[in-house]
Design a protein around this nucleic acid. Sequence first.
DNA 1: CTAAATATACCGAGTACTCGGTATATAAAC
DNA 2: GTTTATATACCGAGTACTCGGTATATTTAG
Lengths: 216, 216
Amino acid sequence: MNMTEQKPTTLMIADDHKLFAEGLSAILSEQPDFNIIGMASNGKEILHLLNNQVPDILILDLNMPVLDGEIAAEKIRQLFPVVKIMVLSMYYSAQLANKLEEIGVMAFVQKDTDAETLFKIISGVQRGEKHFQKIKPDMQPSVFSNGDYFQKSHNLTAREMEILQLISEDYSSQQIAQKLFIALNTVDTHRKNMAQKLNVTGKTGLLKFALENKLR
Amino acid sequence: MNMTEQKPTTLMIADDHKLFAEGLSAILSEQPDFNIIGMASNGKEILHLLNNQVPDILILDLNMPVLDGEIAAEKIRQLFPVVKIMVLSMYYSAQLANKLEEIGVMAFVQKDTDAETLFKIISGVQRGEKHFQKIKPDMQPSVFSNGDYFQKSHNLTAREMEILQLISEDYSSQQIAQKLFIALNTVDTHRKNMAQKLNVTGKTGLLKFALENKLR
DNA sequence: CTAAATATACCGAGTACTCGGTATATAAAC
DNA sequence: GTTTATATACCGAGTACTCGGTATATTTAG
């Protein structure tokens, strides 16, 4: 049987989000094919762990304090080239995926992937397969994904939200006016009204509000 | 023994981040005091689940597609007032904590809490205790938490990063000049240099870059 | 030591924005 | 029907910003 023919894949997890890391460790531990042999919460800590023992696969969060995941990955490639690195992140960008592949990372996976898929990717990585998954090109959820929330809690009109979305996409007022076939003054008025409703100052305040409320 | 005296706390989890939800379910299932009886990935789905069966405690993610966590919480308070609601979020704000408390939510917990603490909060909620934890007042990680990453990958100087941080904190150029005891023209020059390095346009481009790179 | 990088500072010409206020037409609510 | 909300649009006075370019002093790297 397969179970007696192969030893479990040894894994280490480096992620500063404790609840996530512990949850991930728990679901991976349920799999007989995987064996968690270490956990770290920042880049430096994982380097120390690897000095004592190296796993088959390291699951590395991209954004960590003290020593960032990307830089940690570069160092680990140099110091422990036998370790296969998988990077986890909430954020996807093709540029970043390319960079990680150059570094020698084996997989770049988003944190909203389901467990079954993750197990398959891990097994693939252990066999030497790369995985640089491209989900939707635009990974950034639109403001409209929470449209009901905004309309209810901030009393924004549909038009205001339309303009807020365009602001968050770097449209100047002139560009917004052209796109929506309205006057520059009208855009300005909508912006003024929104800023007052949201109690922020000007375009940068609106932009900041829009971006911060995409947080998950 | 306590185990025979009390029945396990029944829990449902509503979170669209599958890996997180499954991990959370796994660690909670390891606790004999807790029993997961349902999982949903959006606000509407959890409402349907509750129509069939209600748990002691519902663990609800704040930002979900289709029907937002906050609005779902309000509806659940009306329709299923016996259910104790705990809200999980990556983001903390006192304003939001107040609002959730008004709605009748029992706890507001950040996703970087460790599992042991979460177990304690859940047990407290089951006993009727509220938990509106205030971690650090400024929950937003500073750009400097990834300082090495920025310096390395974008060739930003220390001064440039200092100014980028102030831009992300809504400082105008005039205010930055005063705060750093430099001329307005100098701030402008730094901004211009950064915008070119980061290949963005102007202040809004810089702000957007700063905010987007705080994503976890 | 020299060369490169960084911080500081300026000019000029122009655009974009801010925010108090005003107003009208249309759509939605009562 | 009337009233309220929304979308559209304007004015004025002023500030903030943009971005091409210039420059020098200091610090850092080779």
